[in-house]
């Protein structure tokens, strides 16, 4: 295998029984403009709501989102924030979303495991009871938890968008293993499955997730045309929010902090010049 090279002298790694690493390749994520970029960028509220719908109707059947509670949806900066309900637990929209989910609980009278409708305080329930069940349901692959997914991947939202829109029918020389799909944006090494010229091994890797989105799969309530790109960018934005729900608060705080520090710096500089004016230095 020409493309496989031995990583030299990764001394610490040597003890971890992983001396041989394949060269992983991937196509750089697509460049896409996000409304939340830059120091004052905010999430597009409509996009967050559409993204939530994509998550709810498509992703959540396999992917958990353990760290996010229903109430988060209604907090400041969240998809369903309503200024009338400063306490997101009271937000009727959030309550009704939660009620649609069945969550596990213990009956306090009998001790039996029961299911009850969710409340704003509950976390999003896991689609699988445990990891082996999740793997069994997905051909051995574990659908990653989505609470931190966006910041846990190099490239963040652009990476997620690229994966979702990047599935490609591979060339006939690439033998895709059963239950896998070729995606040029997925980091991986497909050289072992390539029968063509070794100089032309396609970039990217195999992913166990079948292409999840197709045009028209989710109907948007605001009438936005449901193209593949629209769904992908909306859900990428929703996941960016899910990993950084305090992003808008952080940036707003940051603008104030920068202005304060800037004024403070100018005052200190002026004081410095005044105090030092008679000292040759």
């Amino acid at each position: 295998m020409l493309r496989k090279v031995y990583v030299f002298a990764a001394l610490g790694l040597a003890l971890m029984a992983a001396p041989a690493l394949a060269v992983t390749t991937q196509v750089e994520p697509k460049e896409i403009h996000w409304s939340f970029e830059g120091p004052v960028g905010k999430f597009d509220r409509g996009q967050l709501q559409r993204g939530y719908k994509v998550y709810r109707e498509v992703c959540s059947s396999c992917h958990s989102m353990n760290l996010v509670s229903f109430r988060n949806l209604g907090q400041k900066g969240g998809p369903f924030y309503d200024a009338e309900y400063p306490n997101p637990n009271d937000n009727p929209y959030v309550k009704s979303i939660a009620k649609d989910y069945q969550v596990n609980d213990i009956d306090s009278e009998t001790g039996d495991v029961v299911q009850r409708p969710g409340t704003s305080a509950d976390r999003f329930p896991n689609p699988y009871p445990n990891e082996p069940a999740a793997r069994a349901g997905n051909g051995g692959a574990l659908p990653p938890d989505m609470s931190t997914l966006s910041k846990a991947r190099e490239g963040g939202s652009a990476y997620i968008y690229s994966i979702l829109t990047g599935y490609k029918t591979p060339s006939a020389n690439l033998k895709v293993p059963p239950g896998k799909y070729y995606n040029p944006y997925m980091p991986g090494d497909v050289s072992g499955f390539w029968s063509g010229d070794m100089k032309d091994v396609p970039e990217g890797g195999f992913i166990a997730m079948p292409p999840p989105l197709v045009a028209g799969k989710v109907t948007f309530d605001d009438g936005t045309p449901s193209t593949l790109e629209q769904q992908a960018s909306d859900v990428a934005v929703f996941l960016a929010w899910a990993s950084e729900p305090k992003m808008e608060e952080r940036k707003a705080f940051g603008v104030g902090a920068m202005i304060y520090l800037l004024i403070f710096s100018v005052l200190l500089y002026v004081s410095y010049r005044r105090i030092w004016r008679n000292i040759a230095h």
Binding site: G38, P39, R250, K251, F253, G254, V255, A257, M258, L261, L262, F264, S265, L268, Y269, S271, Y272
Partner: peptide, 16 residues
């Protein structure tokens, strides 16, 4: 003054 300028850079990372 130097600390304040340093904090500006620090804040740029923390917030943005």
């Amino acid at each position: 003054f130097a600390i304040s300028v340093f904090l500006l850079m620090f804040a740029a990372f923390v917030f943005f």
